[in-house]
Design a protein around this nucleic acid. Structure first.
Lengths: 127, 127
DNA sequence: CCAGTAATAGTAACGATTACTACTTCTAAA
DNA sequence: TTTAGAAGTAGTAATCGTTACTATTACTGG
């Protein structure tokens, strides 16, 4: 894989923006300073980086995919009001992989979890 | 919501097929006996049923959405070899919602989990 | 500094899904 | 039961997110 300035920018845009941006968001963030950037380049690099495990790609029904720069095992929260995606850093629940293995007989490599939450901003606006 | 024969068929196709079919799969299953069925009708009803909580809609990167007729809390396994989706029925891990609430301060309603597994068929073919 | 390979910009194409429209089917009340 | 009106359907067009293509540009090893 050859170095490219664009890939560097795209990667940093995801890592530096904890909002879990979509491809379009990355494009909009970067095009201000890099007006020649192509949306296809953003998509291509996000895909490559995800394949290589340098980014994580998240899918939700009826919404564009989002990308996460944290590659360590962690969970996510999805605000059921505003749709915001947040990282949830708690210790990985090792046990539950073993429980599932024991109870189902399947070989379990890992799991990921999505918590349905109310984010602080939405919680406030409700109060 | 008014009764329709098509909706009934679509709902049953999902509930009766534990493969977590895609919209296209549902269409193909049903069109044999119901050649007049329209793909748009399948999509529209799957969406309505998901919105009403009678089906669950699952999204994965780069794959069409899948639908699950089990609406009770449960988990899913995704075979990392063949991509097959399976239900995983183990007791809901109530504790982890509380742990996340305690550690993050967020209001947690529930979670779902996706286990990365090797399905029995793939495990066999490797042996 | 140059050759060769990989990456890009720009645009076209694609697949999954939703929207639209004229026609059909439920259903509730007369 | 008939019938009016609302909701649903079939068939097709349109949309959106994403990937593919192509001519040009930018890395990098020798």
């Amino acid at each position: 894989m050859k170095y490219s300035r664009q890939r560097e920018l795209i990667y940093k845009a995801v890592v530096d923006n904890p909002i879990h941006p979509t491809a379009e968001m990355v494009y909009n963030i970067l095009k201000k300073e890099n007006p020649q950037l192509s949306l296809g380049t953003v998509y291509r690099n996000l895909q490559q980086l995800s394949e290589r495990g340098e980014l994580i790609r998240l899918s939700f029904p009826d919404k564009p995919d989002r990308y996460d720069g944290h590659t360590g095992r962690h969970y996510h929260g999805l605000c059921s009001r505003c749709g915001e995606v947040t990282d949830i850093f708690v210790d990985y629940f090792e046990d539950i992989d073993k429980i599932v293995e024991r109870e189902t007989g399947l070989k379990v490599a890992s799991h990921n979890a999505l918590f349905s939450i109310i984010c602080p901003r939405c919680a406030d606006s409700l109060a």
